[in-house]
Computed example of a mutant assay.
Amino acid sequence: MKKFQNITIKGTKDGLILHLDDSCSYEDLKKELDIKLSESSRSREDRLITVKVQVGNRYLSNEQEEELKELIRQKKNLVVDSIISNVITKEEASKLNEDTEIIPIARIIRSGQVLHVPGDLLLVGDVNPGGTVIAGGNIYIMGTLKGIAHAGFYGNKEAIVAASSMKPSQLRIASCITRAPDQNQEQEKREMECAYINEQDQITVDRLQVLMHLRPNITRLEGGQ
């Protein structure tokens, strides 16, 4: 490890980690980064080395991020893996809150209607045949699910679908899809059930109580009100 005035370069088995001081000026940082990386690249082999950049409490605009990436890429054997900052904009914070918020809605989703929320959905009501509910996170239905439910819409395979009465025409979690069971095999159940992706990468339906073991973090309802 080499310690410089504004930059710390640490070598790992996966490549380089650059810690950039967040109190100096951006221009001073760029100049020093150029010098130190030039020295570092001369002393290393020609194999490609991945670089992770940590900028602490410094906010970088998209233009500044691209400048740093280009500066690093100019060194023939360095490839930028990521730039990590502790700071986000108000817009990014609002989007993050939206994506993790539990949205409570009391209504019946009728045939032809589609309800889509970015985070978790808590629906107090039924989803009728032909109705569709979609959530970026989990779906909790305090009623009967007879239509389509799609949880983990943006690819979250840890998402679940829970309903007081689980009789869906189709269940989707992330990219996994399962059809409704045959009517002659369907049994009347009086307990709340949940659907999740199992270890075989398939959707399975089980008692709600299994979630405390399969998804222990779900009980914290992170992002909820």
Rank of each mutant, 00 (worst) to 15 (best):
K2Y: 09
N6D: 11
I7K: 08
I7R: 08
I9S: 00
G11Y: 12
L16P: 03
I17K: 14
I17P: 03
I17F: 02
L18S: 08
L18N: 05
H19I: 13
L20Q: 01
L20E: 06
D21K: 13
D22I: 01
C24T: 09
D28N: 14
L29Q: 02
I35K: 13
I35P: 00
E39T: 10
R42K: 15
R44T: 11
E45Y: 11
R47D: 15
G56M: 07
G56S: 05
N57E: 15
S61A: 09
E65D: 13
L68W: 05
L68C: 04
E70V: 13
L78G: 02
V79D: 04
V79S: 08
V80R: 03
S85R: 05
T89F: 07
E91D: 14
E91M: 12
E92A: 14
S94M: 07
K95L: 13
K95S: 00
E98W: 08
D99Q: 12
I103L: 08
I103D: 01
A106C: 10
R107Q: 14
G112H: 07
L115N: 09
G119E: 04
D120Y: 06
D120A: 10
G131N: 08
V133A: 03
G136E: 00
I139W: 06
Y140E: 05
I141V: 15
M142T: 02
M142C: 11
H150E: 04
H150K: 06
F153I: 00
F153Y: 15
Y154Q: 10
Y154W: 06
G155E: 11
E158P: 02
S164Y: 07
M166Y: 03
Q170A: 14
L171I: 11
R172D: 03
C176Y: 14
R179D: 15
R179W: 03
R179L: 09
A180P: 00
Q183H: 12
Q187N: 10
E188Q: 09
A195I: 00
E199C: 01
D206N: 15
L208D: 02
L211T: 06
H213M: 06
P216I: 08
L221R: 12
G223E: 03
